[in-house]
Amino acid sequence: MHYRNGTLIGSLGEDKKYDFNFQQVRHLPKDITIKMGDQIVVECTSSTMDREGVTYGGPGTKNEMCAGFMFYYPVVPIATCWSYMDIHYITDALGLERADSIMDAILNIDTVEWDDETRAIAQKAVIEAPHLAMVENRQGKKVNKTTSLPPISLPPPYNCEDDSLE
């Protein structure tokens, strides 16, 4: 999603039937202009209800990952742009003991008794949590900025096996 000054400008794409084994480039129907200060929000939905315990983000086959790649013109000297949420905000919302490190805070999430209420609390906290956005140029200079996500409504549960949405 593309936001400017907190207002949704439009969607840059949607893929409700993503297949890891069939990754492809999606072309926009027309050129768009992204201005300094605009926000690009990549929102991913996954279901791990068939698993026991917490599913962590990461590159492994048992992990979930959410990434978006954009090709743009003209070239600007940006090497990477990414963000992550304040994990302590989520653990605080879940009523967990404050951890000394980010890794300990992540591991504390394993202690949660997950049910509909705790899932709703965690989803709300992820959306509300401050996010640290990081942009790095090709010379390694970084710009860090704490930001909030634009308002996002939680999607309804989605059945990944439902072929009627094609």
Rank of each mutant, 00 (worst) to 15 (best):
A93Q: 15
R119E: 10
L94R: 00
L154C: 01
G68H: 01
P156F: 02
M85C: 15
G140Y: 02
A105G: 02
V135P: 00
P130M: 10
D86T: 05
H27S: 06
D115C: 10
M134R: 14
N159A: 12
G57D: 05
P151E: 11
K124R: 14
S153W: 05
P74E: 08
K16W: 08
M36C: 00
C44L: 00
N5M: 00
T146S: 10
I106E: 14
M1P: 10
D31F: 03
L165Y: 07
I152H: 13
S47L: 02
E52V: 09
V112D: 09
N137D: 14
T45R: 12
L12S: 01
T147M: 15
S148V: 15
A120E: 03
A79E: 10
L154S: 03
K142N: 03
L107D: 06
R4Q: 11
L165Q: 06
G53A: 03
H2P: 06
I102A: 08
R4A: 08
D86Q: 02
D38F: 07
C160K: 05
T80G: 07
F71D: 10
A133N: 14
K30C: 02
S148P: 07
P59V: 03
N5T: 01
P74V: 07
T147E: 14
P151M: 04
K62G: 11
K16N: 04
M49I: 06
C44F: 02
Y158G: 00
I32Q: 05
I40D: 01
V42Q: 05
M49S: 15
C44E: 00
T111L: 03
V143H: 13
E136T: 14
M134E: 13
Y158W: 05
R4I: 06
A93I: 14
Q39M: 10
P156V: 13
G10W: 00
R26T: 06
V143K: 04
M103S: 11
P130K: 07
F20L: 12
V126I: 11
H88Y: 15
E52T: 14
T146V: 13
P77N: 15
T61P: 12
L28R: 03
P59L: 03
P130Y: 07
K62S: 14
Y3V: 05
V42A: 13
G95R: 10
N21M: 04
S47Y: 01
F20Y: 11
V143N: 08
V112I: 14
T146G: 05
F20M: 14
V25F: 06
L132V: 02
K124Q: 11
E136V: 15
I32C: 03
G95K: 11
